[in-house]
């Protein structure tokens, strides 16, 4: 850094960061790891989540009623359908594995010999 000209704004910025880091890095890490900061963050989050949850519940209920009146599938129904598809996919995978096992038995030398 010292090789650079002092009029080089880029180097000055990097130097500023180095100086700033020495002072603030550990102080900031300590600050965010303090119980006071954690309490403050979780309280803010709690408040945000409460508002969001309330808003979301109301929108979902309204939307669900509207979609039902329009004879359209609701979000909950689509999600349930997707979950069922995954379960079917898992059962197919298990069947596939069982089939593989049966084919192995049929192809095994001992089986062929008998």
């Amino acid at each position: 850094m010292s090789e650079k000209s002092p009029s080089d704004p880029f180097s000055q910025m990097l130097q500023l960061y180095d100086d700033w880091t020495k002072t603030w890095s550990s102080a900031m890490s300590e600050m965010v790891a303090s119980k006071g900061f954690a309490d403050s963050v979780t309280q803010q989050m709690e408040s945000g989540l409460s508002t969001m949850g309330l808003f979301r519940r109301q929108v979902n209920e309204a939307m669900e009623q509207y979609l039902q009146q329009m004879s359209l599938p609701t979000r909950r129904e689509v999600l349930n359908l997707a979950e069922r598809l995954t379960h079917i996919e898992m059962r197919l995978d298990d069947l596939d594995a069982k089939l593989d096992g049966m084919l192995d038995l049929l192809r095994s030398p001992r089986r062929r010999a008998t």
């Binding site: 960061y17 700033w20 880091t21 603030w24 890095s25 900031m28 890490s29 965010v32 790891a33």
Partner: peptide, 10 residues
């Protein structure tokens, strides 16, 4: 946030 200075600036 575990290392705010390093991660957000450094």
């Amino acid at each position: 946030m575990l290392k705010p200075v390093e991660n957000f600036v450094g």
